[in-house]
Amino acid sequence: MLEVKDIDVYYGAIHALKKLSITVEKGSIVTLIGANGAGKTTTLKTISGLLRPRSGSIMFDNVDITKVPPEKIVGKGISQVPEGRRVFPSMTVLENLEMGAYLRNDKKEIEADLEGVFFRFPRLKERKKQMAGTLSGGEQQMLAIGRALMARPEILLMDEPSMGLAPLLVKEIFEIIKDINSRGTTILLVEQNANMALSIADKAYVIETGEIVLEGSAQALMNSDEVKKEYLGG
């Protein structure tokens, strides 16, 4: 479904991604793990069109999207749940969700998807008229996921969904990720909680200083002594 091939990405003179290649099969959960500053968020931003690679290519459903603008990439079926939630704080929960559907004009289907989000996240329904900036961190994460789902993505890019959340909420968020995937949405997950990410993923990549240094099935990487030592706490 998604093939990122030999991309080089720079921030000015800083070479952030170096010949990075990953593939994501339709219907799978693929996770990208690594330390802070390794290039995980840069990878997602490049796939979303927010950053432009200097070389290499990005193919989605056999279409080259390397130079496609971000809003058109969303229209093609790629949505991102950004690091830090990035909800619109001065807009209501409902308005945030409606923003997720801004490229759509199928009103009845939008209403059905909205009800679907409220079914999955009952707390959002209870707070639909509340300003998003007044929600708790966990509620904002649910809102960010709901907003991305309102675009009806084929693939969901998730950037650190467990960041800053209490352990019970982390478990809940990962159950939600598994449920979204089970209903047919492919997921590319960036996550510092490597244990949780590997426990739900089909395939995994380890990134260090902008380069993929390990790849394989999530189970194989979870059992790797190198991964255990560096990312799984021994």
Rank of each mutant, 00 (worst) to 15 (best):
E215A: 10
T46Y: 01
T42Y: 03
M59Y: 13
M91T: 11
A151S: 15
D225T: 14
P82C: 04
R183F: 05
F121W: 04
E154I: 11
Q219V: 11
R152V: 13
L165V: 05
Y231V: 08
K18G: 06
E139S: 05
R85M: 06
A101I: 10
R120F: 12
Y102L: 14
I78W: 03
K128R: 15
I176D: 03
Y205I: 05
L143W: 04
G138R: 01
Q130H: 13
P161S: 06
D225N: 14
N193M: 10
M222I: 02
Q80L: 14
A112V: 12
P69F: 07
K19C: 09
G34W: 00
F60V: 12
M163D: 05
N105E: 15
Q130S: 12
I65M: 10
I58C: 00
M150N: 10
M158V: 15
M142N: 10
M163Q: 09
N36D: 06
I110R: 02
P153Y: 00
L103I: 13
I22F: 01
M196K: 15
M196L: 15
T46A: 02
G234L: 07
K128I: 12
T92D: 07
R54G: 12
R54H: 12
E126K: 11
L156N: 03
L143P: 05
P89Q: 08
S162C: 08
E215N: 14
G146C: 07
L165W: 03
G116E: 01
L20T: 11
P153I: 01
E160H: 03
E226F: 14
S48A: 15
S182A: 13
S199H: 10
G133R: 04
K72D: 14
K19Y: 13
A204M: 02
K108V: 14
L94C: 09
R123K: 11
D6A: 14
K107N: 14
R54S: 15
L103D: 05
V24T: 04
I180R: 01
A144H: 07
L50M: 13
T31H: 00
V206L: 02
A144K: 08
N36C: 03
G100E: 02
L169S: 03
E226Q: 15
N181A: 10
S90E: 15
E95S: 12
E83N: 05
I58F: 00
I7L: 01
T209Q: 11
L189P: 03
N36A: 08
S57K: 15
I29P: 00
L198G: 02
R85H: 08
K125T: 09
T41M: 02
Y231Q: 07
L114E: 05
N105D: 15
G49A: 10
L214V: 10
N223W: 04
S199E: 13
L114Q: 03
N193D: 13
K76T: 11
K229T: 13
A197R: 00
R85K: 07
V87S: 00
P89E: 05
S182V: 10
L157S: 09
G37W: 10
I110N: 01
I207E: 00
K108W: 04
Y205P: 01
D8M: 12
D8C: 14
G39S: 10
L20M: 07
L221M: 08
G184H: 00
T134Y: 02
K125L: 08
D113I: 02
R127N: 11
